[in-house]
């Protein structure tokens, strides 16, 4: 498993996968679904730093996705800001909000933390829904097309490249953090807060760092999502989206960067594949998720890696 610690491996695997999918894709539809997978994969990679590495749950992260998405929807028409600058503002707002909320909220543990973050997500969702004069209310609003160097960015291929590059950069940063003293401190406080504290880790500060980083990832994904779809509704910040993000992390594998993207692929793309089951589509998705968790309880990627590298250890696998 040691080779897997290299901070370049996960981004490399994802880059190669993106190239392979592009080569194999036979339609724009496939590219568009893959772009969505990359966008949600980016958010899941960020959430995995909080949930998988630091061991702190958040059931409200779609709120940060919503802040990023609505920043690029609202700011350009209201202020004339370029969508990219609007996106940077949105990501910044999400980061500052996470910084402000992080310390008091992350003092909570377990179920209390889950409910508090759920509340945060609902607050953002309600704000986006109720401020209809600005956000279009529950019906959502149109997002101005992104223009770069005087050119409108459109077409499945362009968006595929943009989202794939964003995903790989996100994976590189996450992998670097993971291989750094910061990542080690997060994993330490996950295992034992008391031991981390007495080893000199400022536990409250590091939990907040993980919260802010994951919020920045979610908001960045929200920016891409809004620009890609050309339309936003408050559902992007809704409870269901938050649950989907956590499901991506747990299903793909807690703490695994590639796993987060695999989880995003299953939640985002599998429903498209399962349309062959017609009205049983959601039932099949539920069955796939249950079977994956029961059979591969560390999450898909870590469990498969364990099976491949340590075939004899499977029976001793405690978690």
């Amino acid at each position: 498993m040691r080779a897997l610690r290299s901070p370049f491996l996960a981004p490399l695997v994802l880059a190669l996968a993106a190239v392979a999918v592009y080569a194999l894709a036979d339609s724009n539809f496939v590219l568009r679904v893959a772009s969505l997978v990359f966008i949600f994969g980016l958010a899941a990679i960020g959430l995995n730093i909080l949930v998988g590495d630091a061991g702190q749950v958040s059931l409200g992260h779609a709120g940060f996705l919503g802040i990023g998405a609505y920043a690029v929807a609202v700011l350009p028409p209201q202020t004339g800001l370029h969508p990219l600058l609007a996106g940077i503002v949105g990501v910044g707002v999400a980061g500052v909000l996470a910084l402000a909320v992080g310390r008091p909220v992350l003092r909570l543990k377990g179920h209390a933390l889950a409910v508090a973050t759920l509340g945060l997500g609902i607050l953002i969702f309600m704000a986006l829904t109720n401020e209809a004069w600005l956000t279009g209310g529950p019906d959502g609003m149109r997002v101005e097309r992104l223009t770069l160097f005087g050119e409108r960015i459109r077409g499945a291929t362009n968006w595929y490249v943009i989202t794939a590059v964003a995903l790989v950069i996100g994976a590189l940063i996450a992998a670097s953090l993971k291989a750094s003293p910061t990542g080690r401190a997060l994993r330490a406080l996950h295992d034992s807060e008391i031991a981390a504290l007495t080893a000199g880790v400022d536990v409250a500060r590091y939990k907040t760092i993980a919260f802010v980083i994951s919020a920045v990832y979610a908001a960045s994904a929200g920016v891409l999502l809004a620009l890609f779809e050309g339309f936003v509704t408050p559902d992007v910040a809704g409870f269901l989206t938050s649950i989907e993000l956590v499901t991506m992390v747990v299903l793909g594998g807690m703490g695994s960067i590639v796993g987060a993207v695999v989880g995003a692929a299953i939640i985002t793309a599998l429903p498209q594949v399962l349309t062959v089951f017609q009205e049983y589509e959601h039932m099949m998705l539920g069955l796939v998720m249950m079977a994956a968790m029961i059979g591969l309880r560390r999450g898909i990627v870590p469990s498969l890696l364990l099976l491949l590298t340590l075939p004899g250890r499977r029976g001793r696998d405690k978690r």
Partner: peptide, 29 residues
């Protein structure tokens, strides 16, 4: 003990205070 880590990583956490606490410096490998 940090049970999810290797023995060496456990000890490296002990070294935490002598390392950079600035996560900005850890964003790129």
């Amino acid at each position: 003990v940090f049970f999810q880590m290797s023995a060496a990583e456990n000890v490296m956490v002990g070294n935490h205070l002598r390392e950079s606490h600035n996560p900005w410096r850890h964003l790129l490998p």
